[in-house]
């Protein structure tokens, strides 16, 4: 019997489904998986004053800050992706987002719009140092990471089939593939994906002026009416790669291949294109 639960976390609805376990075990597994999501939420929140990110933002430039192993791992992945995409993905664009009213203004710190991922120094033993006043926003990658950790919990509990969907960042595994409908804004002709043991994440550039997507290289809002879904082995990569593909299709294509990922891109003319590994 399938057990499904949904709770509000990470600013969205997080849904978990488990099949192939006795009810009590399924519920215990789901509780543990939600605890993982809650931990990522707490540690990597941009506006929560107690989060690892807020502690980093408040620290003096050049001061060494100890963070949770999970925060360190996500920062590491974010910086690696920033490096390989030459800044098309950049976890330090928060000042642009704050300026546009898309992120709340942190009370106790300042963020420089000229800072980049290169100003984040990852040191051994879970330590981090900022070389510049930067605001780090892991909104484009932490949700995917939370999904991966939650799914790992359900897998460890022995579920035959399980899925975790955090407002569209979805990872699953199971005996049979499942069909997931993609929602690319108002497009009525959105594709479907048959998802096996994999993850899919979707980003849509809204038509309104308050579009939540900014090109990290220029600080400008991305062209509207475009949308992308990325299929990858894990949700953190899928989540982050959606931003790279939207910022730069050519570089996105190269990085998709490197991560054995594919993307389904909808351009402004409502055409669908598959990019990435065959």
């Amino acid at each position: 019997m399938e057990i499904a639960r949904a709770r509000p976390w990470l600013g969205t609805l997080v849904e978990m489904r488990v099949d192939g376990l006795a009810e009590a075990r399924a519920i215990t597994a789901i509780e543990a998986a939600f605890a993982e999501v809650a931990a990522v939420h707490r540690l990597m929140s941009f506006h929560d004053a107690a989060s690892d990110l807020s502690r980093l933002h408040r620290a003096r430039v050049g001061a060494v800050v100890h963070v949770d192993a999970r925060t360190w791992a996500v920062l590491d992945a974010a910086c690696a992706l920033a490096e390989e995409s030459d800044g098309r993905f950049d976890p330090t664009i928060a000042p642009h987002l704050v300026e546009r009213g898309l992120l709340p203004m942190p009370a106790a710190s300042r963020g420089s719009a000229s800072a980049s991922w290169r100003d984040i120094e990852l040191l051994p033993r879970r330590r981090v140092r900022l070389r510049e006043r930067a605001w780090i926003d892991l909104g484009g990658i932490a949700k995917g990471h939370a999904v991966d950790r939650a799914l790992a919990c359900l897998r460890a509990a022995g579920a035959a089939t399980a899925s975790v969907n955090a407002g569209g960042d979805l990872a699953r595994y199971g005996i049979e593939p499942e069909r997931i409908a993609l929602r690319h804004g108002d497009a009525g002709d959105a594709p479907v994906i048959e998802l096996g043991d994999a993850a899919v994440a979707t980003s849509v550039v809204a038509t309104r002026a308050r579009a939540a997507h900014v090109n990290p290289r220029s600080g400008r809002a991305l062209r509207a009416r475009r949308a992308v879904s990325v299929l990858a082995a894990n949700c953190m990569i899928a989540d982050a790669l959606t931003k790279v593909v939207l910022a730069d299709t050519r570089i996105g294509e190269r990085i998709l291949r490197r991560h054995r990922a594919t993307a389904c891109l909808r351009d402004g003319e409502r055409r669908w294109r598959i990019l990435g590994a065959a």
Partner: peptide
Amino acid sequence: ELDRDIKGISGATLSTRHVT
């Protein structure tokens, strides 16, 4: 059968601001 088979949706993030 296709839409009956759909198990989930991946799309623009749904905000739970109203729940909060």
